[in-house]
């Protein structure tokens, strides 16, 4: 059975249909690309899976669990983490603190215990060590104690990946990880995504406009256009699909 299955998901905002009964499945361990022209509904779909939007119709299942029965903050307990196209970091915290919040659902120190430091010391120092190690793994330890504000865009994008990784994800959803990166950084990113997939046993769902990256990295591609799924398959099949070509480039007639 597929690890993530999206079934007939429809999202309407007022009169606009952002997603029109979109269905697809992602197998465990797969790197699946989600592509389509602007306004195709890719980010909307991410927001449905991470429970920021309620779909008008449809179902989303992750490892047999109905995600629609969970609130946004409960999703990561099931192992679903994501990054954001325009970054959702916290500027008032340092980089390492940002990563530490990423492990919120795997740590336990509550409000009262935190206030009076009752048995929170060990968890706190272990969490700090773990966050620092994850940052070092992504070669980010030099910025660990700086505010997560005013750093280069590519660095901030990596910090978001670190924040997701520390929570022990099973499914990592990356929303345009290559946007705003330089050529060299994009090539690096491909290697990073593949390595963390292998190292952390991840499934990756990737929204991306950078076609070279998508074609080189993914094992399966789902193409959305105007809220509908228009194609699905391995990169070579999708690339040659006339419907996909038409959606991207327009008809030749």
């Amino acid at each position: 059975m597929a690890q993530l299955s999206v079934r007939d998901v429809t999202v309407r905002f007022g009169g606009i249909t952002a997603l029109d009964s979109a269905s697809f499945e992602v197998e465990k361990g797969q790197i699946c690309g989600l592509i389509g022209p602007n306004g195709a509904g890719k980010t909307t779909l991410f927001n449905v899976v991470s429970r920021i939007y309620d779909p008008t119709e449809g179902a989303v299942e992750f490892e047999g669990e109905n995600l629609l029965n969970h609130q946004a903050h409960e999703i990561c307990k099931l192992g679903v983490y994501r990054t954001f196209q325009n970054l959702a970091l916290w500027k008032g915290l340092t980089v390492i603190e940002n990563v530490m919040v990423g492990a919120h659902s795997t740590t336990t120190a509550g409000y009262w215990r935190s206030m009076f430091k009752v048995g929170t010391k060990k968890e706190e120092s272990q969490l700090r060590e773990r966050a620092y190690a994850v940052l070092a793994e992504l070669n980010l330890e030099d910025v660990a104690f700086l505010p997560a504000d005013g750093l280069p865009f590519g660095t901030l994008k990596r910090i978001e990946i670190a924040r997701a990784l520390i929570g022990d994800p099973k499914l990592l959803m990356l929303d345009e990880p290559a946007s705003g990166l330089t050529h060299g950084e994009v090539d690096e990113l491909g290697g990073v995504i593949r390595t963390i997939r292998d190292r952390y046993n991840l499934t990756v769902l990737l929204v991306e406009h950078h076609m070279r990256l998508v074609m080189a990295l993914t094992e399966k591609i789902v193409v959305l256009n105007l809220g509908r799924k228009i194609a699905e398959g391995d990169p070579d099949t999708v690339r040659k699909d006339p419907v996909v070509v038409e959606a991207y480039l327009g008809s030749s007639k």
């Binding site: 946004a72 903050h73 915290l93 919120h104």
Partner: peptide, 28 residues
């Protein structure tokens, strides 16, 4: 102590980006 803890960081995270806090597991 609170502000330098898991719970305090969550409070600040909600201030700086609520959506980011929610998907990281903070109960708003």
């Amino acid at each position: 102590n609170l502000l330098n803890s898991r719970s305090g960081r969550a409070i600040i995270a909600i201030r700086d980006n609520e959506t980011g806090a929610a998907v990281s597991g903070v109960n708003l």
